[in-house]
């Protein structure tokens, strides 16, 4: 999956930093935003292969970001992973209706996140090939 672009959105600079190091160390390109509004602009401009977003962010939350991505024809296909400290707030219905591929509860393991991203991108690649 080398060369794939990942957009990380989180208002915690340390989380962005550690995830970026982990992904870059494994061959990914990383773009980052520290709020939902900025993340949406980056997604429209950079067309990432996958979006990893925190749930609670100022101005535009992770859920609102994914909703906006799904409404835009250019970004609606981008798979999304949600990081949240409030896993109870994300129901199965919300997850399915917004096409959220995976929800990871904070605190999370960078290794686990990397594996999740790899699995999602692999399945997408297989699906496109088929």
């Amino acid at each position: 999956m080398t060369g794939k672009k990942v957009l990380i959105a989180d208002d915690e600079i340390h989380i962005i930093h550690v995830v970026a190091i982990k992904l870059r160390n494994n061959g990914y390109d990383v773009v980052a935003a520290n709020n939902g509004a900025e993340a949406y602009e980056l997604a429209c401009r950079e067309k990432p292969d996958i979006v990893v977003t925190d749930y609670q962010m100022p101005f535009v939350t992770g859920i609102e970001l994914i909703e906006k991505l799904r409404k835009n024809d250019e970004t609606k296909h981008i798979p999304a992973v949600l990081l949240t400290a409030r896993s109870f707030a994300i129901t199965q219905e919300i997850q399915e209706s917004l096409g959220i591929e995976e929800c990871l509860s904070k605190p999370f393991s960078p290794k686990e996140l990397l594996k999740t991203i790899e699995d999602i991108l692999y399945q997408r690649a297989v699906a496109i090939r088929v």
């Binding site: 340390h14 995830v19 605190p107 290794k111």
Partner: peptide, 22 residues
């Protein structure tokens, strides 16, 4: 819970990275 988990998430992630030699 969110406020507690946020710094905890950083501590967990950074310590794992250190342990994994990243």
């Amino acid at each position: 819970s969110h406020e507690l988990k946020t710094p905890l998430a950083s501590i967990t992630a950074y310590s794992e990275m250190l342990a994994d030699g990243e």
